[in-house]
Write a protein that binds this DNA or RNA. Structure first.
Length: 468
DNA sequence: TCGGATGATTGTTC
DNA sequence: GAACAATCATCCGA
């Protein structure tokens, strides 16, 4: 309440009926207050204006307006507002004919043009003051972030392969899963495409609804402009309010879309979710190396690369595998004893085969063990031995093999005797005792893996390191 | 369906 | 930066 900054148009007294002037003044006061209080709830205001614009003695006019007395104190104002609300509530009860008749009476009133001009002036000032108060808002940073992300993910903007970059990133993060990648790429792309489609459909719906609503409001305002002054600026302001409201809804849509994309990405990028066990052959190769180098199961970078190549996995996966293996072996040596014995036996058999085939072992045409998936049988065990030798970083030399073979045969004899139940004084732990593991739980210091091919061990020390 | 096995990740230590 | 240790998430056989 208080001074509204403009005076009632008393100056028009000679032309305009004083009571009418006062009614118009109060009506304008009501209108201004409501505009200041609520920008968006335009409909009630429009309706209020519609019903409020009436001539003296008109049944639709509030009592205080007709008498020209109310509106100066708080209680009176509340009463007025109550009356107005009551009218709004009952407006639907009025017949269309009645409303049309009232409208016609208004339009035909002899004072209408003059009053309308006055109202236009007042309105113009009011709208200008309101417009001055609300400056252009800076772009919402959150909205900008959402837009950027949607653009980067290929959801918004021109379609560019449905986020193939993200799919490629997912593939890179997966550590080279190989053949599965293409299928997962397409899966990722398909799902991203679905999100994109839903996003655009919803966006289109929102835009359409926004346009429809804007058109509807503008039509209403145009219609209203015949009975009350509505400047283009006011219409523009109303449109911008509507757009702001709809853009808030759009932001929710963008946020939901971003969340969906993030979930999709996390599902595809999280390699743990698509973990695949290594194939049997790869596990065999890794185990072979591990138990062959039990005294120092730390493959060099070269050995890791070689193993990775043979197992068709990445060097990082080899490192992971050895890291896991060392820890799990150390944690539960007993559990791995059988496995250790088995690989020791294989290694020994490999050596025996290498010995019996002599020159064949030296043959460069000897097929690689990687050629037969999961077939670590005796027929190619000699190749396996070759593989292990090469993995040690040493070049194969016949004389060295001869020395190693004897040791491996001894190992084999031990293993054969142990498989009968470890009853000859050599316990399982002795068989594959964690000799390399020191008191601190770690493997004892050893030469670098590549140079560890031929450590000298005591006669009772039987482990599967090929150097023995 | 459950539980062990296993590959990957993360935080810490050296 | 590599290894360790704990943990997670998935696989897979019973």
């Amino acid at each position: 309440m208080g001074d509204h900054g403009f005076l009632p148009p008393i100056a028009m007294g000679s032309v305009v009926d004083a009571g009418f002037q006062q009614r118009e003044y109060h009506r304008e006061l009501d209108k201004r207050e409501e505009e200041e209080e609520e920008e968006m709830d335009e409909q009630p205001r429009l309706m209020h204006s519609h019903t409020g614009v009436g001539m003296a003695g008109h049944p639709g006019l509030p009592q205080h307006m007709q008498e020209g007395t109310g509106g100066t104190d708080g209680d009176g104002r509340k009463q007025d507002i109550g009356d107005i609300l009551q009218q709004i509530m009952t407006i639907t009860d009025q017949s269309l004919d009645e409303a049309q008749a009232r409208k016609h009476a208004l339009n035909c009133h002899r004072m209408k043009p003059a009053l309308f001009n006055v109202l236009c002036e007042i309105k113009e000032k009011t709208v200008l003051s309101i417009r001055g108060a609300q400056e252009e808002e800076p772009p919402d940073p959150q909205l900008m972030r959402l837009d950027n992300m949607l653009l980067a993910e290929g959801v918004s903007g021109p379609e560019k392969g449905g986020g193939s970059a993200a799919a490629a990133a997912a593939a890179a993060a997966s550590g080279g899963a190989g053949a599965d990648n293409s299928a997962e790429h397409s899966d990722y792309r398909a799902k991203l495409s679905q999100i994109r489609q839903i996003y655009h459909t919803e966006l289109e719906k929102y835009e359409q609804a926004c346009n429809e609503f804007t058109t509807h409001v503008m039509n209403l305002l145009r219609e209203q402009s015949r009975t009350r002054p509505i400047s283009p600026k006011e219409i523009e302001r109303m449109v911008s309010i509507i757009h702001r409201k709809f853009s808030a809804i759009q932001m929710q849509l963008k946020q939901s879309t971003c969340e969906a994309v993030m979930i999709l990405r996390s599902r595809f990028l999280d390699a743990r979710r698509k973990r695949r066990n290594f194939n049997k052959q790869a596990t065999e190769i890794l185990n072979e190396y591990f138990y062959s180098h039990l005294s120092n199961p730390y493959p060099s970078e070269e050995a890791k690369e070689e193993l990775a190549k043979k197992c068709a996995i990445t060097v990082a996966q080899v490192s992971n595998w050895f890291g896991n293996k060392r820890i799990r072996y150390k944690k539960n040596i007993g559990k791995f004893q059988e496995e250790a014995n088995m690989y020791a036996a294989r290694t020994a058999v490999n050596a025996a085969n290498a010995s019996s085939h002599g020159s064949q072992a030296n043959s460069p045409s000897t097929p690689n063990s990687a050629g037969s998936a999961g077939s670590f049988n005796m027929s190619n065990s000699g190749d396996l031995f070759m593989s292990v030798q090469s993995l040690n970083g040493d070049s194969y030399q016949g004389a060295q093999v001869g020395a190693n073979v004897q040791s491996q045969v001894d190992t084999l004899r031990h293993v054969i005797s142990q498989t009968g139940g470890y009853s000859e004084g050599l316990t399982a732990n002795q068989m594959y005792s964690p000799q390399g593991i020191n008191a601190n739980g770690g493997w004892q210091d050893a030469p670098t893996p590549s140079s560890v091919t031929s450590p000298t061990e005591g006669p009772g020390s039987v482990h599967s390191d090929t150097s023995n």
